[in-house]
Design a protein around this nucleic acid. Sequence first.
DNA 1: CAGCAGGTGCAAG
DNA 2: CTTGCACCTGCT
Length: 294
Amino acid sequence: MEKHYYKDKVVITGIEHFDLKHTFECGQCFRWNEEEEGSYTGIAFGKIINVQREGEKIIFNNTNKEDFENIWVNYFDLTRDYGEIKEKICNDAMIEKAIHFGSGIRILNQELWETIISFIISSNNNIPRIKKSIEMICEGYGEYIGTYMGKKRYAFPDANKMKDLTVEQLKGCNTGYRAPYIIDTAKLFCSELFTIDLFKELDSETSIKELTRFSGVGPKVAHCINVFALGKRDAFPVDVWIKRIVEHLYFKEQTTPQKIQAFANEKFGINAGYAQQYLFYYARELNLGKERKS
DNA sequence: CAGCAGGTGCAAG
DNA sequence: CTTGCACCTGCT
């Protein structure tokens, strides 16, 4: 990978395994949106960034060398060797096909607080509504950080800000019955000085145990936080889609989430999180939800 | 109009 | 410890 720095953008070349659509639309993040010309604009770490592909080049707009090195290299997981990971998890023809479908997925290393709240909101919910809720929270209670491509942009509000919101205010952001979960979680998060470094020191199992102390965080959401915010790539979130695709490809019959979880641990080990993303994306691509009913 | 969507919490068995 | 059910809300 080669990096070229400019005044307000960074261009990289020679990067493999990076497709914008795969990465931003595989369900791991909720604040990235495609622009008309095909680039994607996102907000993280209180900053607005735009990513665009031009042939072999990936262009990171509205940023600089310092932020790129300090924030975005890690955020986009750019130092990770996805070729090696794919080799390791590619044990059979089924997973090979899934990897092929989502070959350009990179797992983003997202912020802890935002990830916790985003995935609490995601429970029993659909992506358009999740994105809408999060956007309403940011517009209502997040800091205004500038206008980009003609649109006002807001940061995700921190836990300290959110702990003082009322249930009514959060319900006003379309969070429904999750509103009290969010407030309780904010209060607990503030009361114990949880930091990303603290969680990173924990082994995956302990981390799950700690995370499920937060209201609205069960096993599935805790696994998402482990993979998407804490870099614990052995986590394997089991949702309905993963359950369907694993049953479809491997079990050939209905089973329990626990069995799926055990199967993934055994089969993919420390790289289960990557496998989960490829499988999830593949399941969505196959439209397995509808296929089953017919 | 039921059923469902990246599930979880809670009350019972 | 496992199972069944309710739950905001919008879409089919």
